[in-house]
Every structure is written in structure tokens, then in C-alpha cells.
Amino acid sequence: MSGTVPGPGPVTRLLLVDDQQLVRSGFAMICSVEPDLEVVGEAADGAAAVERARGLRPDVVLMDVQMPVMDGIEATRRIVAEDLAKVLVLTTFDDDAYVDDALRAGASGFLLKNSDADRLVDAVRTVAAGHALLAPEVTRRVIERMVATGGDAGPPPASGAVAPDPGLARLTPRESEVLALVGQGMSNTEIAGELFLGEATVKTHVSNVLAKLHLRDRVQAVVYYHRTLT
């Protein structure tokens, strides 16, 4: 279905969590036709999701937000805290609070349910590969909110912007270039094209940037960039 189907390789195991059976069935139908994705379980509420994640140890959990017994934010927090799986939050609610809460709970991605099938599949692959992902519809707004409120995005900016964050001095010139492009929301593929580098090289640079600046993922890198350099 997706235009970016990878070659033979490891299969990503998925746990689908939503209180509506039809929604879970729809996600299962979309994912099951992809050769590198396998739905290994389902859950109808957050508490059941945590228990199923403990037993199944999926690679990625597709998590709804509003559910009975335990909501998706708390379930995400527990799954991430126990390092059971990466979590991709899916919701119909285009609401900043849900995005902020999901990211602070440790979600690796946030996608609206009205996204098309290809975007959903690509989002699962992105999160499974260890990258962070935000729905394009909400990325800029979330960044602006987190920058304005001093959200959890690594070291704070220098007082009065008198001096740059000392962490930046640890970056090589190329890593600084990569940080700037990540900060603009570019993917590894787009950065590779911009800098005429291989994607593997870009991935290494991104990993070095995150490690040197003590950032958890690309979302934090984007916020860090806008807090310290713009």
C-alpha cells in the first residue's frame, strides 16, 4: 500500500489500542497487508494495553487517547516507563493539550486518525526505526507552545541570550548544520538531499546531535533549536 515499502527484513510487531472495535479492525486491515508489519494483539482500554504490552512485548503500540478504565496518556506513560514498546498516539482530537501530554508521557509520535493509510504505515515505520514523529498539522503549533512555555526540551536557553548554550560548542560544523535542518522539520531523506550526504551518514549525525545535547529524540531537538537559535 505505502510507496516506501522496505525490502525483506525484520517484521515490526504492533499492538492496537482503541475502545472502538471498528477502528481497531480498520487499523489491522491497513497494517496487515504490509509485509514488514504484523498485528500481534489488540486492547480496548489503557489498562488492558499495559497488560498486553507486558505479555506481548510489541515493537510499536498504536494508542488511542480517550478510553475507559485508563486513558491513553497514562497507558503511554506506564508502557514507556517499563520500556515495553514505542508508542504512536492516534487521536481524532486536534488539541494541543493531548499532544503535549502524549510527548511528556514519552510517546514517540502523534498522528491524527484522519491521516490516510500511507501516512499511518509510514508513521509506524518511522517510530519503529527509533525516530520521533508529529502530525504535520500540529507540529508548528506544538513547537511554538513548548518554546513559549519552556517545555521539556533539554537544557534551557542562556539567560538573556547573552551567550549561546555551551552544549552547542560540542557540535561539529556539520552537526550544527544537521541540527538546523532538523529544527526546520526536515526528515533524514530531506537533509541528505540538502547536504548531499547519504541517509546513513545523516542518521549518524542526528544521533550524535541528540547524544551531545542530551536530547531524547527529534522532537526535543526541534524545540531545542527554536529555543536556543531562533
Rank of each mutant, 00 (worst) to 15 (best):
P6V: 05
P6Y: 07
G9R: 09
P10E: 08
V11S: 06
R13F: 00
R13A: 00
L14E: 06
L14G: 07
L15T: 01
V17A: 08
D18L: 09
D19L: 08
R24S: 02
R24N: 01
S25H: 10
F27R: 04
A28R: 15
I30V: 15
I30C: 07
V33E: 15
V33F: 14
D36C: 14
D36Y: 12
E38P: 09
V39E: 12
V40E: 00
E42K: 11
E42H: 14
A43S: 13
A43F: 02
A44C: 04
A47V: 10
A48T: 02
V50F: 11
V50H: 10
E51Q: 14
E51V: 10
L56N: 07
L56H: 06
R57V: 04
P58A: 03
D59K: 04
V60Y: 05
V60A: 04
V61M: 04
D64N: 10
V65M: 03
V65C: 06
P68H: 00
E74P: 01
E74H: 06
E74C: 02
A75P: 00
A75S: 06
T76H: 12
T76R: 07
R77A: 07
R78L: 09
V80L: 04
V80Y: 05
D83Q: 15
L84V: 08
L88Q: 03
V89G: 10
F93L: 15
D94L: 13
A97I: 12
V99N: 11
D100R: 14
L103E: 06
L103P: 09
A105I: 02
A105V: 03
A105R: 08
A107G: 12
F110M: 08
K113P: 14
S115K: 08
A117C: 03
L120H: 01
L120I: 14
V121L: 08
D122V: 09
T126L: 09
T126H: 10
T126P: 07
